[in-house]
C-alpha cells in the first residue's frame, strides 16, 4: 500500500540540546506501526514535528501524500492524535470538549462519539477537572477517533488506562485499521508492540537505529544466553554458530544454562544499551 507517513532526513535540535537527527522512515497504509525507545530518545520530537508543533530545520515529512508543513491543516483533518498527557480545559464538561473537537473539524461526529463513549464507559456529564488520568485518556481517545481519521498517532496511549480499557482501546484500533486506517503507536510498553504492531522502529539518543517487522526483530539468529558457570552468572546476546557456543560453554563447569529466543524486551534493551556488538 502507498506510504501514509514518509519521513525523510528529519533533523530537529533545541539549541545545543539534542532533538532528532537524520530520521527517515515510512509507514504503509493499514499498518500498526510501533515506535519505541527510552525517555528522551526523540519519539515525541518526531511526533511533534509530524503534527506541526515543532519547526524542524532539515528534512521533510509527508503524511497521506501531503506536505506536513505546507498543507498542515489538510494533514490534521485526516489525523487523530492522542497526546501522552491528555490535558483539557478544566472547567469544560466532557461533552463540551468532544463537541469542540468535532466543531473544529466542521463535522457531525455525534453518532461515533456516542458509540466510543459507550464502549469506553465515559461519563460525558462530568467536568474535566473531576476526571482521573484514565478518564481524561478516554476523552482523548474519543477526540482522536470520533471523526474516523485515516491516520492515528498515539503517544503513550495506554498509560493510566486499566487493563480492561486497554483491551477495549486496542480492539477499537484494530477495528478502525480493519476499515482502512493506519496507526502510528509510540509506546514504552513493548508487549503492546509485540502483540499489536506489524512493524516497529527503535529510537535511541535522537537516532533511528532499527526499523523492521516485529517478527524479524525477535526472530533473528541472535540468542539470549543466561549462564551460571564457575560460580559466575552472565547474561548476554549471542550471534553466531550455536556449536561454537556449546563448545565454549562445555569447557566450563556449568551450574545453570538458558539459551532462548530473545524477547522484544531483550532486543530493545540490547539496542537501548547500545550493544552494537554481540558475543
Amino acid at each position: 500500500m502507498a506510504d501514509v507517513i514518509k519521513i525523510e532526513n528529519l533533523t530537529k535540535s533545541y539549541g545545543k540540546k539534542r532533538g532528532v537527527s537524520d530520521i527517515s522512515l515510512t509507514v504503509g497504509g493499514g499498518e500498526i506501526f510501533g515506535f519505541i525507545g527510552p525517555n528522551g530518545a526523540g519519539k515525541s520530537t518526531t511526533i511533534r514535528s509530524m503534527l506541526g508543533f515543532l519547526n524542524f530545520e532539515k528534512g521533510s515529512i509527508t503524511i497521506l501524500g501531503k506536505d506536513s508543513v505546507k498543507e498542515h491543516v489538510g494533514v490534521l483533518k485526516e489525523v487523530g492524535y492522542m497526546p501522552s498527557e491528555a490535558l483539557f480545559y478544566p472547567t469544560m464538561k466532557v461533552s463540551e470538549v468532544i463537541k469542540f473537537a468535532a466543531d473544529a473539524r466542521e463535522l457531525d461526529c455525534r453518532e461515533e462519539a456516542e458509540m466510543l463513549c459507550e464502549r469506553l464507559q465515559l461519563d460525558t456529564g462530568k467536568r474535566i477537572k473531576e476526571l482521573s488520568l484514565g478518564n481524561r485518556k478516554k476523552v482523548s481517545i474519543v477526540c482522536a477517533m470520533q471523526h474516523k481519521p485515516k491516520l492515528f498517532v498515539f503517544d503513550e496511549p495506554s498509560s493510566g488506562l486499566d487493563p480492561l480499557m486497554q483491551s477495549t482501546f486496542f480492539e477499537l484500533i484494530k477495528e478502525y485499521v480493519k476499515k482502512g486506517a493506519t496507526c502510528f503507536l509510540s509506546t514504552h510498553v513493548l508487549s503492546e508492540v509485540s502483540r499489536y504492531c506489524d512493524r516497529a522502529a527503535i529510537m535511541r539518543e535522537g537516532k533511528l537505529i532499527k526499523v523492521d517487522l516485529v517478527d524479524n526483530l525477535t526472530e533473528s539468529t541472535v540468542k539470549s544466553v543466561k549462564v551460571t558457570a564457575d560460580g559466575v552468572h552472565e547474561e548476554y546476546m549471542y550471534n553466531g554458530d550455536i556449536n561454537e557456543l556449546v563448545k565454549k560453554l562445555s569447557e566450563r563447569k556449568l551450574e545453570n544454562l538458558y539459551i532462548e529466543e530473545p524477547s522484544l524486551e531483550d532486543m530493545f534493551m540490547h539496542f537501548y544499551e547500545g550493544k552494537e556488538e554481540v558475543r
Binding site: 508543533f53 490534521l76 497526546p83 498527557e85 490535558l87 483539557f88 480545559y89 473537537a101 473539524r105
Partner: peptide
C-alpha cells in the same frame, strides 16, 4: 496548561 497539543492537533 498543556492544552496546546489538543488544540493544535485539530485542523
Amino acid at each position: 496548561g498543556h492544552t496546546g497539543e489538543f488544540l493544535y492537533s485539530l485542523p
